[in-house]
């Protein structure tokens, strides 16, 4: 592994200044579960590594304000999985966080890192899209917030400018509550990179939000407001054509060795229908239209 300089700022301001100074030669280190692999295989060769874990503003925390839950940049998957508020309001995020690697990985991997990597297969991207998460960013010109859907750009690309870093991810608590579920397609039951990641959210007004990843350059969010998908009395067959249309964005790569495009597309439908059923089942009683 090649050498680099290591910086351990204690304020966001210091980190931003370093990032601004080094630009693409700097890499942020939070959980490091992807970064260290890159250091070792030579695909990432930074001049300076900026460790965020000594920054008090970013210290692992999950804050419940009543209207939203804010997950700091250094909070790890285990924190998320164990947090009562997240479990209550965002079960699909818990389901996604729970399958990010092994226990050992989840003790290190951060939600912010999972998103900032810009991997199309990031498990947490679909639930964050379904839950309309906001990304809080700090940079040389101050702080800003943007919807996750704008933040995620493409493979290995997110909407961060030079000098910017993610400080937190905020999840507005759905009001009225929704039913949601996460599912994925893997090659084995043990830890695996997913060939499909998929999250479904259904609200009482009949709106279905579906987000899916690993089948294109980024995770996509699509919304059905017809009420057909969310209708518990409608058959799967009746929903199928609509579901198919919602997967129109999927362009799985024929070069992947994890799954063929045909299989991924077919499984999108299967998993989509399954997640939809689970989400409808989780919709709080009395909230169905």
């Amino acid at each position: 592994m090649r050498g680099f300089q290591y910086a351990r700022p204690v304020t966001v301001g210091e980190a931003v200044a370093l990032l601004d100074e080094y630009g693409p030669d700097a890499r942020l280190l939070a959980g490091g579960t992807d970064l260290v692999i890159g250091f070792r295989d030579g695909s990432i060769r930074p001049k300076v590594v900026i460790d965020l874990k000594r920054i008090s503003e970013l210290r692992p925390s999950i804050e419940h304000t009543g209207e939203s839950i804010s997950i700091s940049a250094c909070a790890v998957m285990t924190d998320i999985v164990e947090h009562a508020g997240v479990r209550e309001h965002f079960p699909a995020l818990v389901e996604a966080a729970q399958v990010v690697g092994s226990v050992q990985i989840r003790n290190r991997a951060t939600l912010a890192g999972n998103i900032c990597n810009g991997s199309p297969a990031a498990d947490t991207a679909p639930p964050l899209l379904v839950y309309d998460a906001m990304v809080a960013v700090s940079g040389p010109t101050g702080a800003r917030r943007m919807p996750i859907d704008e933040f995620i750009v493409g493979p290995k690309r997110v909407a961060l400018e030079r000098g910017e870093l993610v400080t937190a991810i905020e999840l507005p608590i759905p009001d009225p509550p929704i039913g949601s579920a996460y599912t994925r397609l893997t090659r084995r039951w043990g830890t695996d990179l997913a060939s499909i990641t998929l999250c479904c959210g259904v609200d009482g007004a009949g709106v279905t939000r579906l987000a899916y990843g690993s089948v294109g350059p980024r995770a996509f969010l699509v919304v059905d407001e017809s009420g057909i998908l969310a209708d518990p009395h409608m058959s799967d067959d009746a929903k199928a054509p609509l579901l198919d249309r919602m997967f129109a964005e999927a362009t799985p790569s024929p070069r992947s060795m994890r799954a063929s495009p045909e299989y991924r597309l077919a499984m999108l439908r299967v998993l989509g229908a399954r997640a939809l059923r689970t989400a409808i089942g989780r919709l709080p009683k009395g909230s169905t239209t």
Partner: peptide, 16 residues
């Protein structure tokens, strides 16, 4: 070998 190493060559785990 495309799936060289532990990430894409899958062997059974305790969940398999």
């Amino acid at each position: 070998i495309r799936n060289i190493g532990a990430i894409d060559y899958r062997i059974p785990t305790s969940l398999d």
